[in-house]
C-alpha cells in the first residue's frame, strides 16, 4: 500500500464577482499616473493635459453655470429619445415575439435597419423633424429602437413555454399571460439589451449635438476639439464617462429590484 496522495483541487473559477472599490482604485491609479507623468514632464503637456488642470476647468465650468446649460439639454435629449425608442422597441419586440405575421413581416425589416449607422440618417431626420430638438430625439429613439427590439423578441422567445401553457390551462386571459408570464420572463433579456441600447443612445446624443447644437455636451466637446483645448475636451469626455457610469448604475439598480427573485 502506497501513501495516499492528496487529490489536487481543480474546481473553482468561472464565477467572477464584482469586488467593491477595485473599479475605483483602477480609475484613481490611472489618473495618478497621468498626474505624476505630466507634473514631472515625463508625459509632455501636448500629449495629455494635467488631470488637475482638467479638474480646474471643470470647476470653472461649474462655477460659471455653463455646466448645467450644457448638461440639461443633453440629459433631456437622452431621456426623451431613449424613452421613445425603448418603449416602442419593447412593444414591437413583444409583438414580434408573439405573432407570426408581425414576426415574418418585421424581423427582416429590423435586420435591414440594424446595421445602418443612424448618424448617416441625421440629414433625413432634420428634414423630417426639423433642425431643432425633433431630429435629435428621432435619432436617439431610432438608434435605441433596433437593439431593444432584437433583445426583446429574443427574450420573449426564451420564455419557458411550459409556463405559458400553465397560464392557458388555468384559463388566464391573453393579456394576463403577457403581463404576468411573458413580460417578467423576458425581463432579464430586455434589461441586458437596455444596457447596450442606452450606451448607443449616449454615442448618438454626442453625434447629434456635434452636428448642430448650441448647447450640449457634444457641442462643448466639438468646440473644445476645434480649438485643441485639451483640458476642456477631457472635461467633456469625463462627463460622458460619468453619464455612462450613471446609466449603467441605474440599470443595475433596476435589475436588482425587478430581478430580485433571481439572486
Amino acid at each position: 500500500m502506497s501513501e495516499p496522495r492528496p487529490v489536487s483541487f481543480r474546481g473553482g473559477g468561472f464565477a467572477p464577482k464584482s469586488v467593491r472599490w477595485i473599479g475605483a482604485v483602477v480609475f484613481i491609479a490611472l489618473i495618478a499616473v497621468a498626474e505624476i507623468g505630466t507634473q514631472t514632464g515625463w508625459i509632455s503637456a501636448l500629449t495629455l493635459p494635467k488631470p488637475s488642470d482638467v479638474l480646474d476647468t471643470f470647476v470653472q465650468l461649474y462655477q460659471s453655470g455653463l455646466l448645467w446649460k450644457h448638461l440639461t439639454p443633453s440629459l433631456t435629449r437622452l431621456l426623451v429619445g431613449a424613452l421613445l425608442g425603448v418603449s416602442v422597441g419593447i412593444s414591437v419586440g413583444v409583438l414580434i415575439g408573439l405573432f407570426s405575421y408581425i414576426r415574418s413581416g418585421l424581423v427582416p425589416l429590423v435586420a435591414a435597419i440594424f446595421p445602418i449607422p443612424k448618424i448617416a440618417l441625421l440629414p433625413l431626420f432634420v428634414i423630417w423633424f426639423g433642425i431643432d430638438e425633433g431630429s435629435k430625439y428621432a435619432l436617439i429613439a431610432f438608434g435605441t429602437f433596433t437593439p431593444t427590439v432584437v433583445a426583446t423578441y429574443g427574450a420573449v422567445d426564451n420564455v419557458d413555454r411550459t409556463l405559458i401553457r400553465m397560464g392557458q390551462s388555468f384559463g388566464l386571459s391573453w393579456w394576463s399571460i403577457v403581463r404576468k408570464i411573458v413580460l417578467p420572463g423576458a425581463m432579464p433579456g430586455i434589461l441586458s439589451g437596455l444596457r447596450i441600447s442606452l450606451a448607443i443612445a449616449i454615442i448618438l446624443l454626442v453625434a447629434a449635438e456635434m452636428l448642430g447644437a448650441e448647447y450640449g455636451i457634444g457641442a462643448y466637446i466639438l468646440e473644445a476639439g476645434s480649438l485643441y483645448d485639451l483640458e476642456r475636451l477631457f472635461v467633456g469626455v469625463a462627463i460622458l464617462s460619468l453619464l455612462g457610469i450613471g446609466v449603467s448604475a441605474a440599470i443595475g439598480a433596476i435589475e436588482r429590484y425587478l430581478l430580485r427573485w433571481r439572486n
Binding site: T162, R165, F170, G171, L172, S173, K180, P184, L259, W261
Partner: peptide
Amino acid sequence: YVFQDFALLPWRTVEGNISLVLED
C-alpha cells in the same frame, strides 16, 4: 393541470403563484 415540472413562476412567491390563478 398539475404538471410534472411544477410550472411555478420563479418571480412569484408561493402565495403569488396561487394568487395568479385567482386574480383573473
